[in-house]
Simulated scan of single mutants.
Amino acid sequence: MVDWDKIGNQVTQEHGNDMPAALRLRHMLVAAINSGGLAPGTRLTETGLVAELNISRTPLREALAALKAENLLHVDADGLRVRKLNWSDIKSLYELRAHLEGLAARLTAIHASRPEKDLIAQIASTEISLINSDASPSVLAAHNAKFHLVIWNAASNPFLLETMQRLSRLMVLLGATAYSLPERRASIQSEHAAITAAIISGDGDAAQEATQEHLRQALKARLAVLSTSQNLEID
């Protein structure tokens, strides 16, 4: 059961309250998927969502159409469902991320300004403090997203940024974060440190390789998490 009041408050905190109803509903549905409230494979109906959210059908239809266009929802013989990724889907997603994020790190190492590089170093340093203070997986995952987003922006390629943001939206379908694995926390910290050092030094080749290795290890950890859940199909 989704706690829509809690989800609504979260959306307000993250995005504000001044937005069209359809956009707010889109944010709420994504947050519900990300939290596991709407798990992969969950069937959605307009009637059910209208009743649960106490909303009209028009903005809901707009929100659902947007999520279908982003491949977060799909239609099968039984109706509309939250998309469920299989083993090959996840491998393909991470393979593409490794190539594109490696390119972003390379461009950032070569072209980013000193303030941008300092910000990346600051975020990496804060991550160490969060891990040492035993921050929750959700807090660490949010901080991890910030680390990667700054690198994408610092690459100064709007088309690459748009593509990475689109890919990142699919990540909500993967459920539990790899930060739920205690042994993975230290590894991520070390991998981020290698990426940061290469970017700071302006070594594009090293930044690209460190990022691609980070994504290879992230895939292994993600499959380890998902292989024990009911959300993974092995084809």
Rank of each mutant, 00 (worst) to 15 (best):
W87E: 02
E213F: 03
L73G: 02
L44G: 00
D235W: 13
L67P: 01
G41P: 00
M19Q: 06
L85N: 03
L215I: 11
K6E: 03
Q208H: 09
G48D: 00
I55H: 08
A197H: 12
A112T: 08
M171P: 13
A51D: 12
A210I: 04
I110T: 13
A63C: 04
V139M: 13
Q189V: 13
A32K: 08
H111W: 03
A66R: 06
A98D: 01
L100R: 13
D78Q: 10
A65N: 14
R166V: 01
L64D: 01
I234M: 11
L29D: 01
D205A: 07
L167R: 11
L149Y: 10
A32F: 03
L223M: 07
I120Q: 06
E52K: 14
A197R: 15
L60R: 07
A198N: 09
P182E: 01
T45A: 03
G102M: 02
E162N: 14
R61L: 08
E52T: 06
F147W: 12
T45Y: 01
F147A: 02
L119T: 10
A77R: 11
A224N: 10
M164S: 10
Q208S: 12
E70I: 02
A112N: 08
F147P: 00
E191W: 02
L72S: 03
N71R: 11
G36E: 02
G36Y: 01
L232M: 04
A193K: 15
A142M: 12
D18T: 12
Q189L: 15
G16H: 10
I90E: 01
S133R: 13
A112E: 03
V150K: 14
N54R: 09
K84L: 05
S156N: 14
R57H: 07
L223P: 02
P115Y: 13
A145D: 08
Q122W: 15
A206I: 07
R166S: 12
D89I: 07
A77D: 09
I234D: 07
I151D: 03
L72W: 01
L73D: 01
N71L: 04
E95R: 15
V30K: 13
H74L: 09
V172P: 10
N132D: 15
V82A: 00
E70D: 05
D5Y: 06
A21G: 05
E213Q: 15
E62M: 10
E191I: 08
P20G: 00
S168N: 14
V50S: 06
S133W: 05
A141E: 11
K146D: 09
E62D: 05
E62F: 12
G48F: 00
N132W: 06
L215N: 06
T42L: 01
V82K: 00
Q10L: 11
A198R: 14
L219A: 00
A207Y: 04
V82C: 00
W152G: 14
A77F: 04
E233C: 09
G8S: 09
G36R: 07
R166Y: 07
L107T: 02
I120C: 08
P182F: 03
N9I: 09
D118N: 15
S133T: 11
L226C: 08
A176S: 14
Y94R: 10
E183D: 14
S180G: 11
N71S: 13
